[in-house]
Amino acid sequence: MQEWQFLVPDKKHKKKFFGNLKAEVIDAKLCCHCAACAAICPVDGIVSGDQPIDFPNWVKECVDCGACIKVCPRWEYKPLKGIGNYIEAISAKSKRFKGQDGAMVTEITATALEMGLIEKAIFVSRDEEWRTKIVTIRSPVQLYDRKVTGTKYSYADVLPALKDAVIESKAVAFVGTPCMISAVRKMQKSFKKFERVKLAIGLFCTENFYHHQLSEFLAKKGVDLRLATKTDIKKGKFIVRFVDGGRVSFPVKEFEEIIPSGCKVCQDFAAVESDVSVGSVGSESGFSTVIVRSEIAKKVIDQIREKGTAEIKEPDIQAVQKLCEYKVKIHPYPSKEKEKTQ
């Protein structure tokens, strides 16, 4: 029998491991709601969803394995900054799909599925009221659904679905915010099984919202999300487009009150740890900026180039750089409030 060993981070409090996580991350308002702990928990006790991460009755039910701490991206948090290393950066627009801007997330997934690099991809879809819903993509056909493509600006339980997918199949891709990417990287460090996540597609991210808070906020402003076809943040403005063609926009600053605390300490804009990050910043409208960071992603982009399924242009990397710096500025860590209280 083979011997193996793994390391669990030190406990900071004399509690079970979830107690430590609760004290150090959730109660310290660092939690970014990536649901990695909910995914990994062996007793399925941690609940995520449209509410802060919690483990009701953890005193009794937690088995003190430490898995949640091992995967938490905010445990002993060292913020990632800047644009990170990359192989190449392009600005592209898919010819096949329609998405948020250039629909390059969809295009990359579809191409990877067609190439056989991955078996499944975890995407986030939505319902009529823009609640998030996890879908498992098995063939590119499923990607023509306009509900699957497009940004949602609400938390979604991608990682629990990813864990199930990883157990079932050999090669998986997923799309996530920078914190989710960091969580998956931490998982891969500890657990060999997660090496099956072959392609991690990061999204440019400034902040994310709880769905109920976002919809309540918009309802206060007189916007009915049920009629919306697209939500977008561009140039400091939150834009909602409607079925009848109308559009409403608000300055992002008005959203200050509903930004979850976890996002207020995040400085990673460009998903530095991902295989490929995608976003609208740095391209003209209708195009997406794609920052390729790993070999596998390079292969996919080469395939796209070869087949000509997307228009490719040069991106404006400076703009991305600028926003990265902007995010560091608006989300200081350790936060000012915390410094004041200390």
Partner: peptide, 16 residues
């Protein structure tokens, strides 16, 4: 048999 010890969470559910 354990196929992939490297992925063990250490939750000891199997023992229980």
């Amino acid at each position: 048999f354990c196929l992939e010890p490297e992925s063990c969470l250490g939750c000891r559910q199997c023992m229980e």
